[in-house]
Design a protein around this nucleic acid. Structure first.
Length: 596
RNA sequence: GGGGCGGUAGCUCAAUUGGAUAGAGUCCCGGACUGUCGAUCCGGUGGUUGCGGGUUCGAGUCCCGUCCGCCUCGCCA
């Protein structure tokens, strides 16, 4: 076999005159006739033009070169020379070419169903790209994304190593735990009828490592949650998981701010500056969402008090509800930019978030017009003043319970920003969201559920509230949000058994159940656990932001589809009877089809 | 589990109101061409219209079911 001497992105005019050997994939072939063939040879570093010339080598080699097709794997030896036909500015190697002297076909490829071209990839159905992932991953863009992903983990390991963090692996085969997402479970061969679960995160183990005295822990780790995927969500995903001992909230925020700044500097060369801190309720009230996109200015106002003065039944009915509110959002210039069809569309849009609709008014030179203008007439001046309205503005309202109205308005805010192109795509807007409530009440289950997770500590001055007013109790939780995307979340943990017990009870987990499910954690706390706190960065989302994609499958080498299949390997697949017998598992596929 | 969009040649798409032998580009095959670079030009092969049923003289098109992909609500401590 011809031995490779250089990579295909490497050769420059200074190599002219050298005899080299390249190896790679045939990216394109251009046959100029019996005596002259061009091949663009590709490897992960780039493209190099190879020329086969009948005048320079024997005819059989040219004939063989002529049979090359896309994605054949070849090695070519020859002489580097300046291009005769002029340089190609599109290629980094565009000033030179390799005059072939030897050709070895290492693997003749079948005609590829898809091609790893950037201009093709835009058009090719993602289904095909996933099915032939090995071809799609040859694309320079995909290579660059996965390299960036590696760079992120490399920078993280280096940064935290310098800060005294130790990387420790935690098990994948663990015990199923209550709360949280649905677990993936794995049958136990040695214990009939018993099951392992795959971790939703290494949360409990990293806390125990703190109890074990490791002080600072890091792990870049896969997590598993058996929930429906989304554009930015996969059933298996990766975290940069961190935990620190003897720290409070500000210590963690400081450390992780520093890391985030360092990461953006290292990967993009961008100085993101300080990361502001915003209380959860501010985020919800002003932006309607706990991960506000601060790249644009639209803000939401609570106008309940004004709305109460109107006769509009929608407002009155909402305000009559427990926690009923009326929210308003001014869209500057929206009166002219948004058509009736669009505003009707927005009304339908908010219905998907269980709001009733999004009534509007436009402010014209003649005062409020269209929509609910006649209802807001009595509060016209106050509303104008409150929202700083100007002629040409449009105002959207939502009226419902606080949580529904806020969410509907928050989603509408993001949608209008996209539609009106208000988002500064070059901006990096980070914010810490803090002071999140410990619990929210689940109406369906009729009980409190943890907003973060059951191991989150309340703020020190809030401990008494656990008993008096759990719904108002503020946690130590903190999330980093970047451009409307949550990239990390964590908290100070409970490190004293009595408080952990108290929180379990509040969550409706009995002492017996707590002992059975979390006994090992409670004992670990009992035998001496330090105050501790940590965070986990969503690696996939970090990479998505850094490479500028909104598709999580782009940043995972072998991702799954929305129905949890791997189109390349066709997982999941059946297991044979013997395997199942060994695992003491019997399959009971209920046929949900109607009988007829 | 719900809603929306889609599935036609290897790939990307078209096909009028239900109407003739389902077309085009590209890929592939053959030919021409010694400076191309998303090469070009000429010719050709290539189809279970996702799958199963139904309506009809006739279905890519209409109806029912089903599978798959994407987006989304629920869900995701």
């Amino acid at each position: 076999m011809l031995k490779r001497s250089h990579m295909c992105g490497e050769l420059r005019p200074e190599h002219v005159g050298q005899t080299v050997t390249l190896a790679g994939w045939v990216n394109t072939y251009r046959d100029q006739g019996k005596g002259l063939i061009f091949i663009d040879l590709r490897d992960r570093e780039g493209l190099t033009q190879v020329v086969f010339n009948l005048r320079e080598i024997d005819e059989s080699a040219v004939t063989e070169a002529r049979s090359l097709r896309r994605e054949d794997v070849v090695a070519v030896g020859g002489l580097v020379r300046t291009r005769i036909g002029g340089a190609n500015p599109k290629l980094r190697t565009g000033e030179i070419e390799l005059l072939a002297q030897q050709l070895e076909v290492l693997n003749k490829a079948d005609t590829p169903p898809i091609l790893p071209d950037e201009h093709e990839a835009q058009k090719i159905a993602e289904e095909k790209r996933l099915q032939y992932r090995y071809i799609d991953l040859r694309r320079p863009k995909m290579q660059q994304i996965l390299r960036t992903r590696y760079e992120v983990t490399r920078v993280a390991r280096q940064f935290f190593a310098n800060k005294g963090f130790i990387e420790i692996e935690t098990p994948f085969l663990i015990k199923t735990t209550p709360e949280g997402a649905r677990d993936f479970i794995v049958p136990s061969r040695l214990y009939p009828g018993k099951w392992y679960a795959l971790p939703q995160s290494p949360q409990i183990f990293k806390q125990i490592l703190m109890a074990s005295g490791f002080d600072r822990y890091l792990q870049i780790v896969r997590c598993f949650r058996d929930e429906d995927p989304r554009a930015d969500r996969q059933a298996e995903f990766s975290q940069i998981d961190l935990e620190m001992s003897f720290v409070d909230r500000d210590d963690v925020i400081k450390m992780m701010t520093s890391f985030t700044q360092h990461l953006w500097k290292e990967i993009l060369g961008v100085d993101i500056g300080d990361i502001p801190v915003m209380p959860y309720h501010d985020a919800m009230n002003r932006y309607g969402i706990d991960r506000p996109d601060l790249r644009f200015d639209l803000e939401i106002e609570d106008v309940s008090a004004l709305a109460a003065k109107t006769d509009f039944r929608v407002f009155q009915e909402a305000l009559a509800k427990t926690n009923g509110v009326v929210k308003a959002m001014r869209v500057p210039g929206g009166a002219t930019q948004l058509t009736r069809k669009m505003t009707d569309g927005y009304s339908e849009f908010v219905k998907t978030f269980r709001a009733g609709g999004a009534p509007t008014v436009k402010l014209t030179e003649n005062g409020f017009e269209t929509g609910v203008a006649k209802f807001v007439a009595p509060i016209a001046d106050e509303l104008t003043q409150r929202l700083n309205l100007e002629v040409g503005d449009i105002v959207f309202f939502t009226a419902d319970t606080w949580s529904i109205a806020a969410k509907a308005m928050g989603e509408l805010r993001n949608k209008i920003a996209r539609d009106l192109d208000l988002i500064d795509e070059s901006a990096w807007k980070f914010v810490w969201i803090v002071d999140t409530p410990m619990f929210e009440y689940d109406e369906d289950a009729q009980r409190w559920v943890a907003m973060h997770h059951p191991f989150t500590s309340p703020m020190p001055d809030q401990v008494d509230m656990l008993e008096t007013d759990p719904g108002a109790c503020i946690s130590t939780g903190y999330d980093i949000v970047c451009n409307g995307s949550e990239i990390a979340g964590g908290s100070i943990r409970i490190h004293q058994p009595p408080m952990q017990q108290k929180v379990f009870r509040l969550l409706g987990i009995s002492d017996e159940e707590a002992e059975q499910k979390f006994g090992f954690l409670l004992r670990a706390l009992r035998y001496g656990a330090p105050p501790m706190g940590g965070i986990a960065f969503g690696l996939d989302r970090l990479v998505m932001l850094l490479v500028g994609t909104n598709n999580i499958r782009d940043v995972i080498a072998f991702p799954k589809t929305q129905s949890g299949q791997d189109l390349m390997t066709e997982a999941p697949g059946p297991a044979d009877e013997a395997q199942l017998r060994e695992l003491h598992v019997k399959v009971d596929v209920r046929n949900s089809k109607p009988e007829h």
